[in-house]
Design a protein around this nucleic acid. Structure first.
Length: 783
DNA sequence: ACATCACGGATTTTT
DNA sequence: TCCGTGATGT
């Protein structure tokens, strides 16, 4: 294959990123700046020009979609490269047969060896190698056929512990918030013991206790939750030198996409792999080794899922040369934007400049000025929806190339889709709501996966119970209770009771026949695990269990729907087998548990897309409608008090604006129906932060000059303190102690920004870390 | 085992 | 307003 990769069409920053070979590099990649291109070209460059063995490369993403795209683009890049060197012409110029041949050659020799995937999928893969070498601090263990419990499994486990085992009031210890606390702990790499140490009050200790029992149950089920998929490898790498050395040696080049979205545990994982556990900021062994992270602090919108963009901000400190932006060799900024018109970028730049916590960066236009942004003030959500749908009608009439698939309607909360949908239906405009109910969350899909999981993992009691009476086998609640009780009293897995004829007969009474029959089916297919492929097992179980027959018998529309979904799942199994070398049931289950949606097609159907701003990240549309810019809705009322949260809302708005390629419409309503009652609404403070000269509007007074009191006060305070070099306002250092009105006493652990624009990361005991703008928050220094 | 009703709660959600 | 949950009745 040719030695050189053509990168002449890349800009100089992109080239710097692509040509980076060893050592650390932070790529600050603005929206639409070609970061996926930088990532894929760099991987190609490593292999082609630096002769890096593909199996030494690890590339981590956050979504399956991103991983899939990266794989495809790399494969295409390599195939094109080979086409040029073998035939002297680009891939596209070859016959379809030649193209396929080249692609499969590239797949077999290069792409297959690359580890590209989500944190979760890659960790699951590592765990299937090494989890049996792991034991947690309390001696809990797992085996390689572990189940992966999804969020609802996790929540019902917590609920059972809180209400059944601990007999607590689930009003006081709401399973949802307890589960959230556990998840948070895991995302900070805290074990139950670690969590308990931090707790001073009763509630905290109870939660730590639930966490501990929750881990017991997971282990008893030989199951992990999503967070464990990351945390377990981290702990394993920490405790086992050989395992650590193996993976460290293996992954010489580590790449991370969307680095601003990593949480502490994911960071620990990357750090352990890269440095082999040596202190990251003194790590110096960069020969034949690199860490390459790409991200944008301005697009960090997942802090509620424990993503921590201060990790990105700290990259220079952790791995880099810590030099100033102008001199550093370990950071490069991609600022040229190829997506949006100049007006759109200007609006985005000005908005985000109101944030204090960020890495300085502007999106530089490469395209023309474009149309002005249109701001629409509507009377209520209905008229807002009418405006949007009318616009769509008008635009499609005027511009034949704008089919429905080129429009997106973005909103802060899912509830906002209703009014839009009503209006779209009325005008008969085809649309799709992106996000809704996920394929793998459907009951029938969970049932089928329940069967498969129960077969793969004998300890998975949750799955056994899910399907033991689905379809009905006359096994009632009392029977199940006594079986479960017996297993608990004997401290043996439920499966051992089910598979023991004598026990079943004595416990189950009239239901014994059904239980035995069920156990037989599971047993039968478990024996075939090694002999049969995933699809053979799936088909066999669906028949033997009577699940499909039951759906057929029902004959209702709903049952037909479900049947179709089951068929689709079966297709997914077949497809999995085609695409994977190891078509085992275990492999399929792992991929299914980690997949969010099947409909990855959908590009071709020409429908208006409706989605939340969160779901829109990473996408782009020629025409974007950003709706509901009202105080309390966007920014959301829950974020208005806390400056760090408010900044995240602003980033969310920034994400929305930067989705637009050609046209951007922003709207708000003066009155909105919320939970049944009509409420007056005022325009979002973000609107006042946009450059007026770039906005057109239906009403001259669409943007008010003055803000309602609390906001005008915040803004005044902010500008005042900017001009006032007051006493110690900016004079903070790490280790300083302070008192916050609401959070109490805390300690400064990190400082962001410089000059007048600084923010403090403050650790409050029991509350964790908060980001505080000293100019906007009432705090008192404690000397 | 299933239907029915009252009640409370309602950002965002990559895996 | 609307949805999921849990208690109640048949």
């Amino acid at each position: 294959m040719s030695q050189t990769l053509d990168i002449s069409h890349l800009n100089s920053s992109q080239r710097r990123a692509v040509e980076h070979y060893c050592g650390p590099l932070l790529v600050v990649a603005g929206a639409g700046s070609g970061k996926t291109r930088a990532l894929t070209y760099r991987i190609a460059n490593l292999v082609l020009n630096h002769r890096v063995d593909p199996e030494n490369i690890l590339a981590v993403t956050f979504t399956n979609k991103a991983a899939r795209e990266m794989k495809e683009r790399i494969e295409k890049l390599f195939a094109d490269q080979k086409a040029r060197s073998d035939f002297g012409k680009p891939l596209d110029a070859l016959s379809p047969i030649e193209q396929t041949r080249l692609r499969s050659y590239v797949y077999k020799n290069i792409t297959k060896e690359l580890w590209i995937g989500t944190f979760h999928a890659l960790c699951a893969r590592i765990l299937r190698f090494d989890i049996e070498k792991y034991q947690d601090g309390s001696g809990r263990k797992w085996t390689r056929n572990f189940s992966i419990f999804d969020e609802s499994d996790a929540q019902s486990l917590v609920k059972e512990i809180v209400t059944q085992k601990l007999n607590l009031d689930d009003k006081k210890f709401d399973p949802k918030s307890v589960r959230y606390a556990i998840s948070n702990a895991k995302n900070k790499s805290l074990s139950p013991q670690d969590l308990e140490k931090d707790q001073s009050n009763f509630r905290g200790r109870v939660i730590a206790n639930v966490y501990s029992m929750y881990q017991d149950t997971l282990s008893a089920n030989n199951a992990l939750d999503f967070d464990d998929l990351i945390l377990t490898p981290v702990q394993l790498l920490k405790q086992n030198e050989q395992v650590r050395a193996y993976w460290h040696k293996r992954f010489r080049h580590v790449l991370v996409d969307e680095y601003q979205d990593t949480n502490r545990t994911q960071y620990d994982l990357i750090s352990l792999l890269v440095t082999n556990g040596e202190n990251s900021n003194t790590f110096n062994e960069w020969e034949y080794r690199s860490v390459f992270v790409v991200g944008d602090a301005d697009q960090s919108i997942y802090s509620f899922r424990a993503a921590d963009f201060t990790i990105l901000m700290g990259f220079q400190d952790d791995f880099g040369d810590r030099l100033h932006d102008d001199d550093t060799r370990t950071m490069v900024k991609l600022e040229e934007n190829y997506r949006s018109t100049r007006n759109i970028l200007e609006v985005a730049n000005q908005l985000i400049d109101n944030n204090t916590e960020r890495i300085d960066k502007v999106l530089k236009p490469t395209r023309g000025e474009g149309e002005p942004i249109f701001l629409y003030r509507a009377d209520d959500e209905t008229s807002e929806a009418e405006f949007v749908t009318n616009q769509i009608r008008q635009l499609e009439a005027k511009h034949p190339e704008l089919h429905h698939g080129k429009f997106a309607i973005l909103y802060r909360t899912n509830a906002q889709s209703r009014a839009m949908e009503d209006s779209l239906v009325k005008l008969q405009i085809p649309y799709k709501v992106v996000g809704g109910l996920r394929f793998y969350d459907r009951k029938e899909i969970k049932d089928v996966l329940g069967y498969l999981r129960a077969i793969a993992n004998p300890f998975d009691t949750i799955s056994l119970l899910r399907v033991i009476n689905t379809p009905r086998r006359g096994i009632g609640k009392t029977t199940i209770d006594s079986l479960v009780k017996a297993s608990q009293e004997l401290s043996i897995p439920l499966w051992e009771i089910l598979s023991d004829e004598t026990s079943v007969k004595s416990l189950a009474g009239r239901s014994a026949k059904g239980v035995l029959q069920f156990a037989q089916i599971i047993q039968k297919w478990r024996q075939e695990l090694d002999a049969c492929s995933a699809s053979e097992i799936a088909q066999g179980v669906l028949e033997d269990s009577g699940y499909v027959a039951d759906l057929r018998n029902q004959g209702t529309d709903e049952a037909t729907d479900r049947l179709e979904n089951v068929q689709e799942l079966y297709n997914a199994v077949l497809q999995f087998e085609e695409n994977n070398d190891d078509p085992s049931l275990l492999g399929f289950l792992a991929s299914a548990s980690l997949a969010s949606d099947l409909d990855n097609l959908g590009e071709e159907d020409q429908k208006v897309s409706l989605m939340t701003l969160h779901s829109s990240k990473g996408l782009e549309f020629p025409v974007v409608f950003l709706i509901g810019l009202e105080q309390g809705l966007f920014p959301n009322y829950r974020s208005m008090e806390d400056p760090a949260a408010l900044e995240e809302e602003r980033r969310l708005c920034y994400v929305g604006i930067t989705r637009a390629q050609e046209r951007l419409f922003i709207s708000y309503a003066r009155e909105r129906r919320l939970y049944g009652t009509r409420e007056p609404a005022s325009p979002s403070l973000f609107l006042a932060e946009l450059p007026r000269e770039l906005l057109n509007s239906n009403v001259a007074a669409a943007i008010p000059n003055k803000w309602t009191k609390p906001i005008s006060e915040i803004r005044r305070n902010k500008s005042e303190s900017r001009n006032m070099p007051n006493s110690h306002a900016n004079d903070w250092s790490v280790g300083d102690r302070l008192i916050h009105k609401a959070y109490g006493e805390g300690e400064v652990v990190r400082i962001f920004g410089a000059g007048n624009k600084i923010c403090l990361a403050v650790k409050f005991p029991g509350l964790g870390q908060k980001i505080i703008d000293p100019k906007m928050t009432p705090i008192r220094r404690e000397d």
